[in-house]
Design a binder for these strands. Sequence first.
DNA 1: GACCAGGCACATC
DNA 2: GATGTGCATGGT
Length: 225
Amino acid sequence: MKELTPDIYKRLHTAFGPQHWWPGDGPFEVMVGAILTQNTNWGNVEKAINNLKASGVLDPLSIYKMDNSTLSGLIRPAGYYNIKAERLKAFVGYFIKGYSGRVSKMKKRKTEVLRKELLDIKGIGPETADSILLYALKRPVFVIDAYTKRALSRHGIIVGKADYNEFQELFHLVLPEDVALFNEYHALFVRLGKEFCRPKPRCDGCPLYPLLPQELCHHVSPTGW
DNA sequence: GACCAGGCACATC
DNA sequence: GATGTGCATGGT
């Protein structure tokens, strides 16, 4: 197990520069995007969000009142549209009943309380909850996604099995609680993932090379990542 | 046509 | 507790 050293962030930031995350307009749009992007290409999510905007329904109350079938029709380009319609409805139900659909009210609560509440909503798991906490509510919570897991495993920083919380602890233990840093760092891992750490790796020019145990990042860890 | 994408819940062993 | 499967569109 290698350490999560500061030069990893430096290498990524030097290679890619600032990523300007989260793309989108305002906290509520970020929350909606966090649900829509589950296992889905961001370009498709943008189409769905644009449909909601064009119909003038990208607000909590409109989504809350909308038929599931109408909603699923609008978010269709994002894929899994029936499930995601339910998940959006579940989230806005919580948001309206708990906080009158107001981000300012939600911000009064502690991070741990909000995380627990979000995880209790059917369709919101750890990555979606943490994305909402970090990118919409500006809490210092590190987001772990498939790319981050894959990159850390392939580069030998995590060896063997690790669940979401163990990956997250790796960052929480060494990083200062800095929202801007968490924001940028996660976005950089996604950028790295898109360019180099896909299931079929394209390792030429990977900025984390030569952290690798051997020579090439075709190295596949025991976890299968 | 095959592969992949900024997950999650649920069934089954 | 670990592993497998359904959910689905759209770009490469």
